[in-house]
Nucleic acid binder design. Sequence first.
DNA 1: CAATATGATAGCGAATCGAAACTATTGCAC
DNA 2: GTGCAATAGTTTCGATTCGCTATCATATTG
Lengths: 177, 177
Amino acid sequence: MTPQIEMMFLLDRLARVHAAQRRMEGMTDAQIAALDYLSRANRFSRSPSVVAEYLATTRGTASQTLKSLAEKGLIIEHAPAGDKRQRMYDLTEAGRAIVVRLPGQLPLEQEPEALVAAARLILRSRVSSGSLPTFGFCRTCRYHLGRDGQGAYCQLLKLDLSVEERDQLCHEYLEPA
Amino acid sequence: MTPQIEMMFLLDRLARVHAAQRRMEGMTDAQIAALDYLSRANRFSRSPSVVAEYLATTRGTASQTLKSLAEKGLIIEHAPAGDKRQRMYDLTEAGRAIVVRLPGQLPLEQEPEALVAAARLILRSRVSSGSLPTFGFCRTCRYHLGRDGQGAYCQLLKLDLSVEERDQLCHEYLEPA
DNA sequence: CAATATGATAGCGAATCGAAACTATTGCAC
DNA sequence: GTGCAATAGTTTCGATTCGCTATCATATTG
């Protein structure tokens, strides 16, 4: 029993226990995961296709999941400027109310940064074996250009980002070199 | 964005990506999880009720999952001596063949022990908020009495354990004081 | 004997997957 | 520009699974 194997076993059960605890108020784990994702993603990453990639499922299933969330009044659809095919989703007040009371705090006392770094490594290794995007935060993205104190600039999309947006998930995230 | 929050987000997506990758050979995530569990659990922890507790679901659902695994010929049921209500399950050769080729290796280079300890802490905090058992290994169990070189003794069940059994999951696991 | 525990089963609602068909829009080659 | 392939999104279908509740039979415990 190597630490690698034990780690895998622990993560597995943690995921199942977590999913069971999140399954509440008539919502499935996929719906909660999508809602939670939408609450953390930036305005360029909240479309059905991107949700499908995040959830590692098909566009069809993601479309259904988003539909059920919209019917519950937890998210709302809107058409962004530009590409007329795209749909984007925002959380409603009701949706935000659910997200904030999700069990979110983990007991990480010592060296939380090291643990997070390891989790990033694990996820990246899983993701790279397929062809799934990484979904990271602007502040550690290769395209990110900091502007001390006042927002940031994305070199990929060529536009300014607010301070809050630096801590949101992005579909276009690229690992630092 | 605290490390605790980011850790939660990473674990969430890791679970979904992992489940999607495991969903192969016509098996669902729950079935693979049950099969994997059975391959690691000791002979006292392979009953439907215990599987239900491990998977954080009900006995009814666990019974269905085990039934489908048995129909696929991956596990086989047998009645242990003692309590005549109990059923135990063992992996068949076909079942074992699937388990060994599951993606199991994680890229943990530095200080894996510290990571595993942190993961244990996270899982324990999740589990204790409900009433789920911890499911640990004999070698770190409070009931475990080492006998250098030749197996071990369980002070709870009052019987000898082989060397291999020390590295198997147990339902009765109790955290060290 | 009564209460409890284990397990199986049935019924229900919902979600999921995969695949496919379909619309609308966009981008590219020419 | 025109034509056509590719993309984004939705919807449908059938089969399967899941989770929950409840009920039942059996066996154990007190």
